[in-house]
């Protein structure tokens, strides 16, 4: 069920401002791909084009192609709503619905889509998703408590549970651990390794060790200069990026000599 993503010559705009220029990547199914690069280089923006979340921002638009198993996400007959149901997303800041219980947060995707299921089915989905997010044991006694009452790391895992509850084919993660302590980060990283068995995962991270730990391939984004669009500098096996990058800019960034 996991799908292949092929991005071809994608330009990403905010209004007239070109944020990412001419990026092309091929992401294989059931792999973890990390996007790294300095702040403002467009890696999060690029990630958000992979499920058409970029368009939620007024003026957000793209040119080029994003193919999901050969099907263009930006085709004229494609509904972004359906894209987002296929490509799930986890955000930098854990964002459980504050008005919902843990249980309702997990099945929020079904409630939004208006899918009717029996209580038993929903119970199964909730347990399976929370187990999938390594959160079940911690919350099974308090599923009806507010999701916002959990700790930061638990909230982030709740968001992952919510994203995988609707069984997407790709999971995008935008700096999922940047607000978490090392133990919660480790929990999420372990989870990513497990989720790789079922999903194609793309993760944006500022933490290069994290990219090295969790990903199979790594893409390095950088700005050509102030006011210039972000560009995809190098995209390769993670081991190669971190040991023997082919670009000077990548090597500088990896080793801390940037700017």
């Amino acid at each position: 069920m996991a799908k292949q993503i092929d991005v071809e010559n994608l330009n990403v705009y905010y209004g007239d401002f070109l944020a990412v220029q001419d990026a092309s990547v091929n992401i294989a199914p059931l792999t973890v791909t990390a996007f790294i690069g300095p702040s403002g280089c467009g890696k999060s923006t690029f990630l958000r084009t992979l499920n058409r979340m970029h368009e939620v921002i007024p003026g957000g638009r793209v040119t080029g192609k994003v193919l999901l198993d050969g099907e263009d996400l930006y085709g004229s007959d494609v509904d972004p709503v359906n894209v987002r149901r296929t490509v799930g997303m986890v955000f930098q800041k854990a964002n459980p619905f504050p008005t919902m219980s843990i249980y309702d947060n997990v099945i929020a995707g079904y409630k939004i889509a208006g899918t009717r299921k029996s209580k038993n089915d929903f119970d199964d989905i909730v347990e399976r998703s929370l187990r999938g997010a390594n959160l079940w044991e911690e919350v099974k006694q308090r599923l009806n408590r507010p999701g916002a009452g959990l700790s930061g790391g638990q909230q982030q895992r709740l968001c992952i549970a919510r994203a995988i509850a609707v069984e997407p084919q790709v999971l995008l993660m935008d700096e999922p651990c940047s607000a978490l302590d090392p133990i919660s980060t480790l929990a999420i990283e372990d989870l990513i390794a497990e989720l790789k068995a079922s999903y194609t995962i793309v993760i944006v991270t500022h933490n290069m060790q994290q990219a090295a730990r969790v990903s199979d391939r790594t893409a390095f984004f950088n700005l050509a200069g102030v006011g210039q669009p972000g560009r995809l500098v190098e995209y390769d096996e993670t081991s190669k990026i971190f040991s023997n990058p082919s670009q000077k800019a990548t090597e500088d960034y990896i080793s801390g000599r940037f700017g």
Partner: peptide, 16 residues
Amino acid sequence: GETMDAAWALGATKWE
């Protein structure tokens, strides 16, 4: 914004 993003990312239409 992040709460609205959460709904968008689950494939919500505007009304949803």
